[in-house]
Amino acid sequence: MTGGAERGADRAGMQIVVDLNRCQGYAQCAFLAPQVFQLHGEEALTYAPAVPDDQLERVRGAATACPVQAILAGEQAGADAG
């Protein structure tokens, strides 16, 4: 993972978003990728939307394992915007 100015809007790495209407706090993701997903209290999920490069495999695993399929991972939208 890199820090500083090269992160952010122009970053071509993986972003995630969790549909928290769908999320029911099963917390599979928090076990599989604890650096990215954490429970805040008993069932509120927080996560890092910009996935560090060394966490890509773990996040893909978490997205697959989510019982309600609430995690979307992908390239940053609009990264090609001029």
Binding site: R7, G8, A9, R11, M14, Q15, I16, V17, T46, Y47, A48, P49, A50, L72, A73, G74, E75, Q76, A77, G78, A79
Partner: peptide, 19 residues
């Protein structure tokens, strides 16, 4: 209003993944 204000996530890092 959550991760960013808690200082856990940079405001520049909240981009949406594309489908």
């Amino acid at each position: 209003t959550k991760q960013v204000l808690l200082g856990r996530v940079r405001a520049d890092d909240v981009g949406l993944p594309r489908r």
